[in-house]
């Protein structure tokens, strides 16, 4: 269940991300659940603590206690910054110390409208054409798709580590690290 998008919007985001980072012989954005990453980011304040900064020091994938899943608490100013960035300033004076800020949620809603409610049902060429025709939004979506594909899975994407596996990247290797031989040899 998406926390920010409607089910229909979520299907459009899923379909668009699958065009940006498609599956081939290896999994793509769909299998990595990149849309969940984006939905979780835009809906970060549906969670307590908000899903902005994963915890530390280790994920548990290479030993140590699994701390990534416990997200950091935000202080008053951090919350103000991230709410303003995600939700926009919405005309509230306390968010407009340097003027109005258009939030990511609004940019996504506008981008979804431009892609069209029928986007998920279109063929690939049509989808690519609409993505190219909305270059500014597609650039934003692609940035987030990359974060969801290749970021830590605790943020909702890169499920099964599929983003890291196919590029042969181990990810967060602490506390094991790399041996001197792994560093210095081919």
């Amino acid at each position: 269940m998406p926390v920010f998008f409607s089910d229909a919007e979520f299907r459009v985001i899923e379909a668009a991300c699958a065009r940006l980072i498609p599956a081939d012989e290896d999994p793509g954005a769909g299998e990595a659940r990149v849309a969940d990453y984006i939905d979780g980011f835009l809906g970060a304040f549906s969670f307590d603590p908000p899903r902005i900064w994963a915890g530390g020091a280790f994920s548990g994938r290479f030993g140590g206690a699994a701390g990534f899943a416990s997200f950091h608490r935000l202080n008053r100013l951090d919350e103000l910054a991230w709410r303003t960035r995600i939700e926009g300033s919405l005309g509230r004076p306390e968010r407009e110390w340097n003027g109005p800020v258009v939030g990511l949620q609004e940019r996504y809603r506008a981008g979804l409208a431009a892609l069209g409610t029928d986007f998920a049902g279109c063929n690939g060429d049509e989808q690519d054409g609409r993505l190219r025709a909305n270059g500014e939004f597609t650039a934003l979506l692609y940035e987030h798709a990359c974060e969801g594909m290749y970021g830590a899975p605790e943020y909702g994407g890169n499920q099964g580590l599929v983003g890291w596996r196919y590029i042969d990247f181990a990810g967060d290797v602490q506390p094991r690290g790399y041996s001197d031989e792994e560093v210095s040899q081919p």
Binding site: W53, G56, S59, Q174
Partner: peptide, 13 residues
């Protein structure tokens, strides 16, 4: 123990 090998947290957020 707040620091971590996390590209999203340090490079983007």
């Amino acid at each position: 123990t707040d620091f971590s090998n996390d590209e999203i947290k340090f490079m983007i957020r």
